[in-house]
Design a protein around this nucleic acid. Structure first.
Lengths: 118, 118
DNA sequence: TTGACATGAAACCAAAAGGTGTTATATTAT
DNA sequence: ATAATATAACACCTTTTGGTTTCATGTCAA
């Protein structure tokens, strides 16, 4: 189950939501406590928390009259996995070379020359 | 320079744009070629490319009557860096323990017991 | 030179996003 | 019991997003 109405990519697209996540990384917080760190209304923060919650990036438990939100970082692994595909293209020069070679037909006239060190 | 009007987080938030990036990872393509992979109009794809371009995730060069777009993956390193902060929370159990200990006040009654191996 | 092709540019549109404020309800402290 | 607190639930507003269609322009091929 864990219905994911809001995608994790969409959830982290908003800077305010990323800052909320950062706050919750330190410790779990009630909505009002979170709101006190931002210039916007409590209602707005509650909506952001709703979106984060739909992406399973946070979970909220009601304690007394407060609702305490907690970071749930596991869905971020989806982003990490997505990123890993592209890492090859910037991580090391060998991969960049590989990329060029594999797109040889798009690089007409380009030659890769192996240089022997004596 | 390289004015970043559209944030990389926002750029990758859209599934269509992520698919465009995936296509361009294989090889550089003209707008029409990209469009042929999607059920939406050429104009819509052009707009997505514009957004990706503003985030410096692609670059376009005009060749004859075509505009060829190419993947430019390095802005993704910003996402990777952002993610790395959260990896500690899901990557290994020691870090999770660390997280619990640092939030000790939020875990009243919880005790961490060190077990000596003989 | 005349179509066919690839793109650019503009006007337009519906829905979603990111806010606001108000009101109602449950919980806590005095 | 009462007042203050914390949130939920709405209704509402404006801007952005993701898409459309139409028309103009530059380029290639026959």
């Amino acid at each position: 189950m864990t219905a994911v109405k809001h995608d994790v990519f969409q959830a982290i697209a908003d800077p305010t939501r990323r800052e909320v996540l950062r706050l919750l990384a330190n410790k779990e917080l009630a909505i009002s406590e979170i709101t006190s760190h931002f210039p916007i209304s409590r209602t707005a923060i509650a909506k952001h928390l709703q979106i984060l919650s739909e992406a399973n990036l946070v979970s909220g438990k009601k304690v007394g009259r407060e609702k305490i939100y907690q970071l749930q970082p596991e869905p971020l692994s989806e982003v990490k996995q997505w990123l890993s595909y592209y890492e090859q293209f910037w991580n090391n020069k060998l991969s960049i070379l590989k990329h060029i070679v594999e797109n040889e037909d798009e690089n007409d006239g380009l030659k890769v020359i192996k240089i022997d060190h004596e």
